[in-house]
Amino acid sequence: MDLKFKIWRQDGPEAAGRMEDYELTGISPDMSLLETLDVLNEQLIANGETAIAFDHDCREGICGTCGMFIDGRPHGPLTGITTCQLHMRSFEDGATIHVEPWRVDAFPVIRDLVVDRSAFDRVIQAGGFVSVNAGTAPEANSIPVRRADAERAFDAAACIGCGACAAVCKNSSAMLFVAAKVSHLSLLPQGRVEAVERVRGTVAQMDAEGFGGCTNTGACEAECPKHVSMEHIARMNWEFVKATLFSRE
């Protein structure tokens, strides 16, 4: 395949960015998009130019490191996959592919396609856990968990923290990310104990980081590579209402 690229280049956090044009020929449809960027970087290095910086690691869709806007959509034109799982067979021969970093105020650009997503870590630090020290847990089977609840908790826990939800949202809202953690833990008896503190803490941190509010457009669910459902946002809102109206402490 012969392809054209328009890729965001930015030398540093404070530098102005720009779209640069690149061309590649002889790309195999079985290559992934990241492998194609590898080839492009090899070409740049051969010409003595600086390689394009992009975040990536596992290249199998589970670590959540990669993430870029491809032709105007997070993780590209397919649904249910991350950028590293996108193969060139999804593009037409001769296509021009636009690649940009996440555009979210709470995720500032570090360089080229690399952004700082540490805001997500701080949200989790604000309550996305069960307070149980190593060595203090009760026997695992002493608390049975309804199978359907465990499965639904898993659906939420499958979030990989890539940031596509906030990146696609017109409000740059991180509701789906926050809801995934709140919902995962509130569905399990082990997590219920701290449900009030968790939803208050994480929602407050989400606001403090500068993420926008949720207006239920559903773009996050549509673009989530792990199919995390908006049902979890509804559950988080219910938890938040309970924590606000019915809980005294």
């Binding site: 695992a140 309804r146 898993f154 995962h184 082990q190």
Partner: peptide, 14 residues
């Protein structure tokens, strides 16, 4: 296993 279940790891269940 006790530790991870207490943390909220959603292991498969019967």
């Amino acid at each position: 296993i006790d530790q991870c279940v207490a943390q909220g790891v959603p292991f498969a269940r019967e």
